[in-house]
Nucleic acid binder design. Structure first.
Lengths: 343, 343
DNA sequence: CCTTGAAAGTGAAACGTTTCGCTCTGTTCG
DNA sequence: CGAACAGAGCGAAACGTTTCACTTTCAAGG
């Protein structure tokens, strides 16, 4: 039904090779150029990327696999990634793993069969095997936000440990000594944030009662329940560090329903989102990730790898590039007024 | 580099046709089946969807074009759409129009060249021309959330007029008479919500001072500035209807910074999101769209169209199906405690 | 024992591009 | 004037599948 290059041949009398040359930006007589353009216009011709891809074995598509698409963190990244890829001439094919490692593995295989030229992956869990098919197919991969054990695949992320350390340090500097944390340990990210928190408490020689460390699922429910439990303690904490967006959401919900006031009765600092702090009153002090930076660096890294891949396909081993480490960006703390000074 | 069907032929000694038959679920001798499976496993064979698509002229990909990817509304829809398409064997290729009609038009053309089997579009603006290339290429299209003038393309959305009417009616029933609205008119959706609001005020014979109707851009800034202006009025409204998520965000931000208390000094009702109301204190009463329903209906509609398209390609005109109208779903009001009763 | 027909397998054409190596036409320069 | 060369265009092969029309095999039915 749709017009093909052959239809253009009929109309213009030129050969397929010439028309293809035009489509790919070669030099033609102005006269022939005009003819082709006219024909394209009349016939509403659009390149069939499948046919093109079959020959070039490049799809001009980058696969993006995210652990969960329905949250602000993910879609903000998607936005910046998409812009970047677009301006490099690539489209993004986005796959949602729905927080399910099996679906994640399927997504990878699916994208391979679609012959994507590269992949960005924000993994669901901690292990790396699911990436093997992609590596085997020699598709360049860059991880984001969460590194995985022993994959040897580069990851672009923030320094979760360091940032958490500084967040809790801020609570300490405001005079707080009874500090609790609500976090998760499903993903590396959560683990690292917990480590940062524990490290500071250790450095400051603060004993942490085990009931102050609420480490559980990465979910609104966990935040909600944990906050309730913390507030019910005989000796509730005076300050709480919340490890991610969902947990903040749940925790603040519980706090709003309680008789406790922030920051009067309890101080808060959280990790992960900026927009939401505008809604709560008082505004919550947050560790904010440089999402645009993260996305742009990941995109740049991937596009670079893709370039190199294509050029070094001339059978040069070139194994001197010893596995570069993760790319770690700094996060910044944006102050609200959710932290009270304690004498 | 990657294994092809021909490699499998080498290993198994079977013909291409037979192997293809296996891949597409035909009947084979158990013995041959086993041979092929073994070969596929050993060679890590994955179908090349580009080659397949070239022959079948179906990509098993559905294009999704959204006006802006970086917001909760969009990505929640994307989540449900994705699940639905996946279970029907389709992948989603998501394109962000970045609120820019030109990029939107490019996205459509891009998806056509990718030979997507269908499209879901949440348009940026009010006009329909940008869809023409898709219609010309006979690609089934379903709109979501925002219908466009005279496209003849079906849209799945909520009844914005009716829902707004009921939202404002709720304010009225609580005794409010000084009712303001902060809304947008960039998209149909915003216009319809404004109409619903005005209709109720008219039905109740309430005069609206023009400075009470803050209709502007669909943005946090507009919400923020409008709220500031409303609160500064000599006779500020006692209740405010906020037309979408971004506006709620900005408006609540301004309110938090002011000396006004909700609901004591001003009552609020908003349109569009559920999660956020958990963060604000008090919880804001909201008109919530049935996102899952919207997505599932849109997906079903599109898959249906795609089916019909494929089957009726037998040159039957079958023009009896007179253009079905939009599919309109009801929204529901979720009460918070942001509305005070006025005597 | 012959006929019929279903089941399993095959060879080759087709899908719409790109690309390689070739030809043709001028133009430049010694 | 002839050689050399650049620019423009061309024909045909190739990419990895599916599918059509055909053949072979074998069991069942009369």
């Amino acid at each position: 039904m749709a017009a093909t290059i052959k239809d253009i041949r009929e109309v213009t009398g030129l050969s397929l090779a010439t028309i293809s040359k035009y489509l790919n930006g070669g030099n033609l007589l102005p006269e022939n150029k005009a003819k082709i353009e006219k024909a394209i216009d009349e016939l509403h011709y659009e390149v069939n990327e499948m046919a093109r891809g079959l020959v070039t074995s490049r799809s001009k598509v980058i696969g993006v696999v995210v652990f969960d698409i329905a949250n602000v963190f993910t879609c903000t990244l998607l936005k910046y990634l998409g812009e970047r890829f677009r301006s490099a001439g690539y489209a993004a094919m986005i796959c949602d793993s729905q927080n399910n490692e099996q679906i994640e593995a399927e997504n990878i295989r699916f994208l391979i069969s679609k012959k994507v030229d590269g992949m960005i992956v924000i993994p669901v869990g901690l292990t790396a095997e699911f990436l093997n098919p992609a590596l085997r197919a020699e598709i360049p991969v860059v991880l984001m936000d969460r590194s995985v054990d022993g994959s040897g695949v580069q990851c672009v992320k923030v320094d979760n440990r360091e940032s958490s350390y500084r967040a809790v340090e801020m609570l300490y500097d405001y005079g707080h000594r009874k500090i609790a944390m609500i976090g998760s340990d499903i993903e590396v990210t959560g683990k690292e944030r917990e480590q940062g928190c524990r490290q500071l408490l250790k450095d400051k020689k603060i004993e942490v009662p085990p009931e102050y460390m609420k480490i559980g699922r990465h979910s609104i429910e966990h935040g909600y329940k944990s906050m309730q439990e913390l507030l019910k303690l005989e000796e509730p904490p005076t300050a709480i560090f919340m490890g991610n967006f969902e947990i903040i959401l749940g925790a603040v919900m519980a706090l709003n329903e309680s008789s406790f006031q922030c920051p009067h009765d309890v101080s808060l600092i959280g990790f992960d989102d900026l927009i939401i702090s505008n809604l709560s009153n008082p505004r919550i002090t947050l560790v904010v990730q440089p999402l645009q930076d993260l996305a742009e660096n990941a995109a740049k890294l991937l596009l670079g790898k893709m370039d190199k891949d294509r050029n070094s396909s001339d059978e040069e081993p070139e194994e001197d590039t010893q596995m570069p480490g993760d790319l770690i960006l700094p996060a910044r703390i944006v102050e609200g007024n959710s932290i009270a000074r304690v004498e």
